[in-house]
Write a protein that binds this DNA or RNA. Structure first.
Length: 316
DNA sequence: GCCTAGCAAGCGTTTACTTCA
DNA sequence: TCTGAAGTAAACGCTTGCTAG
């Protein structure tokens, strides 16, 4: 292309411009009047995209304004000039049909417009560039709008998520409080009934066996379990308790440990909730520990009850 | 079949000119 | 009348695809 570009410069350029100027006809001439006729059928058999210049334009503008406009295009040789309005319209129509320019179509267009084929080619090139720029602007606007919409949706979802999190937190707290109150009451009842119904010479092992049947041991945390375990194991007075508590604590492995301090609202947290509902709530164990550790009798493995009081009738 | 030079065409960028507020 | 912005024709340099040798 560089060769063609260079070939079109200088004297050649001047010659072409002079020739074009001479060839150009005013819009109110007979020829141009015919050019303003409405187009319907392409007259270029070689190209289906071709729009005949003779039928290209739909308006006949033979006014003084148009004439002046056209005269405005006349110029000194060598100076760049604009194409006539009707020429541009004709080129536009052809561009709408097909924005690429085959050689024969280019020749035909140039012939009909009285331009150099190269001028037609350049016009199409520039027109494609303008079209591309416009298209880019359009795409940019569309993307911008789309982004705005998505961002708005995202922000709304974030707000909704926050609201739901808070709701879940509230409900959790309520549930924990409720369960806590319930368990306190159960333990109190158990203590009362065990005091009333305790056998005179209870066998300690039996109580431990009862304890080992506690189904909700698995919900205790490792640290709770180990502390309870150590409290019990530290007692040299009751080796059989140690054995029993060992088996009692073993199920509390990490896979069953609940992590209430998890702050992230996730499926795991949902699972935790379900687990908490199906098992005894975690506050239960600390309660046991409270009974277990606070009482001087705890070291003997009696869980804070006197041996004679340990029937645990409320256990199955 | 592979390589190379020449050519034409297209594209992006820049320049020069025109038009208009 | 001057001026700056916008529009546009054309130039320029580069790349790509095709073809002949």
């Amino acid at each position: 292309m560089a060769s063609t570009g260079k070939a079109y410069t200088g004297a050649h350029n001047m010659t072409v411009l002079l020739q074009q100027q001479n060839e150009r006809l005013p819009p109110n001439s007979e020829v141009l009047n015919s050019l303003w006729l409405p187009s319907s059928s392409p007259s270029f058999p070689g190209s289906k995209a071709m729009v005949s210049f003779e039928n290209a334009t739909s308006k006949v503008e033979t006014t003084e304004e148009n004439e002046e406009e056209y005269e405005g295009c006349s110029h000194q040789p060598g100076k760049k000039r604009r194409l006539a309005v009707n020429q541009v319209q004709f080129l536009e129509k052809n561009f709408e049909q097909e924005n690429k320019l085959e050689p024969e179509r280019k020749t035909q267009l140039a012939k009909e417009l009285g331009l150099e084929p190269r001028q037609v080619a350049i016009w199409f090139q520039n027109r494609r560039a303008r079209y591309k720029t416009k298209q880019l602007e359009k795409d940019y606007d569309a993307l911008k709008a789309s982004y705005g919409s998505l961002k708005s949706d995202h922000d709304n979802l974030l707000k909704e998520n926050e609201t739901l999190k808070n709701e879940v937190k509230c409900l959790k707290e309520k549930l924990i409080e409720k369960e806590k109150g319930k368990e306190d009451m159960e333990i109190e009842n158990a203590i009362c009934s065990s005091i009333e119904e305790a056998p005179q010479n209870p066998i300690v092992k039996t109580d431990c066996e009862a304890l080992s049947n506690v189904p909700n041991v698995v919900v205790c945390k490792v640290e709770d379990a180990s502390s309870a375990k150590s409290d019990v194991l530290d007692s040299d007075d009751s080796p059989h308790y140690a054995e029993n508590f060992s088996s009692f604590l073993e199920p509390a492995d990490s896979s069953h440990v609940l992590e209430p301090e998890q702050s992230d609202f996730s499926q795991d947290e949902d699972d935790d909730l379900i687990l908490r509902k199906s098992f005894l709530p975690s506050p239960f164990l600390p309660k046991l520990e409270a009974y277990c550790c606070d009482d001087p009798c705890a070291s003997s493995g009696c869980f804070g009850f006197h041996v004679e009081d340990q029937s645990f009738n409320f256990w199955p």
